[in-house]
Computed example of a mutant assay.
Amino acid sequence: MSAELRLLPWPGADGRRAYLATDDATGFVSRLADSIEAAQLDTGAEVLAHVRDLLEVPRATSGELRFAVRRLAECLDDALRVAESRGARLPTLDEKGDDDGPKLPAAAFE
């Protein structure tokens, strides 16, 4: 099997996209990327909860709201990268057109 390219959840040294070429989803860097993606999504959920609370504060300042929007933008950027990376790794229909549904490993549902 040839190595697949996986979009990593962090930028490369030059600030551009970083990829991992591997056919082993259980390798150290793959597991590290999985862990960081999970942390990014958890952080996004926490920031969203804080922003929702802030929106209920009638006297929230423009500075507070601007800070919240910046954090939300960062979290959305992370979430979109995670979605792109995970979407690229989803199995596709085989050439025969058999469609028994996606064949994901059990770990994908944890």
Score class of each variant (00 low, 15 high):
Gly44Phe: 01
Gly44Met: 13
Ala45Tyr: 13
Ala45Glu: 05
Glu46Val: 14
Glu46His: 10
Val47Phe: 13
Val47Leu: 10
Leu48Asn: 05
Leu48Pro: 07
Ala49His: 09
Ala49Met: 11
Ala49Tyr: 12
Arg52Cys: 10
Arg52Thr: 11
Arg52Gln: 15
Arg52Pro: 15
Asp53Val: 07
Leu54Ile: 05
Leu55Arg: 13
Leu55Pro: 12
Leu55Asn: 04
Glu56Asn: 06
Val57Asn: 13
Val57Ala: 09
Val57Phe: 07
Val57Lys: 03
Arg59Trp: 06
Ala60Gly: 13
Ala60Ser: 10
Ala60Trp: 10
Thr61Pro: 04
Thr61Ser: 11
Ser62His: 12
Gly63Pro: 15
Gly63Cys: 06
Gly63Met: 08
Glu64Tyr: 14
Glu64Phe: 11
Glu64Lys: 05
Leu65Asp: 06
Arg66Pro: 13
Phe67Trp: 10
Phe67Arg: 10
Phe67Met: 10
Arg70Gly: 14
Arg70Trp: 03
Arg71Ser: 08
Arg71Asn: 11
Leu72Val: 13
Leu72Trp: 04
Leu72Ala: 07
Leu72Ile: 09
Ala73His: 12
Glu74Val: 11
Cys75Lys: 01
Leu76Lys: 14
Leu76Asn: 11
Asp77Asn: 13
Asp78Ala: 05
Asp78Phe: 09
Ala79Met: 01
Ala79His: 08
Ala79Lys: 08
Leu80Met: 14
Leu80Asp: 05
Val82Met: 13
Val82Gln: 05
Ala83Ile: 02
Ala83Gln: 15
Glu84Asn: 14
Glu84Phe: 14
Glu84Gln: 06
Ser85Trp: 11
Ser85Cys: 04
Arg86Lys: 08
Arg86Phe: 07
Arg86Asp: 09
Gly87Gln: 14
Gly87Glu: 04
Gly87Leu: 12
Gly87Met: 06
Ala88Pro: 06
Arg89His: 15
Arg89Asn: 14
Arg89Glu: 15
Thr92Tyr: 00
Thr92Val: 08
Leu93Gln: 08
Asp94Ser: 09
Asp94Arg: 12
Glu95Cys: 00
Lys96Phe: 02
Lys96Glu: 00
Lys96Asn: 07
Gly97Pro: 08
Gly97Glu: 03
Gly97Phe: 01
Asp98Tyr: 03
Asp98Asn: 13
Asp99Phe: 01
Asp99Ala: 00
Asp100Met: 02
Asp100Trp: 04
Asp100Tyr: 02
Gly101Asp: 03
Pro102Thr: 01
Lys103Ile: 03
Lys103Trp: 01
Lys103Gly: 00
Lys103Leu: 04
Lys103Arg: 00
Leu104Pro: 01
Leu104Phe: 04
Leu104Cys: 06
Pro105Gly: 00
Pro105Lys: 00
Ala106Tyr: 00
Ala106His: 07
Ala106Asn: 02
Ala106Ser: 14
Ala107Thr: 05
Ala107Pro: 07
Ala107Ser: 06
Ala108Arg: 07
Ala108Gln: 14
Ala108Trp: 00
Phe109Asp: 02
Phe109Lys: 02
Glu110Phe: 01
Glu110Met: 01
Glu110Arg: 03
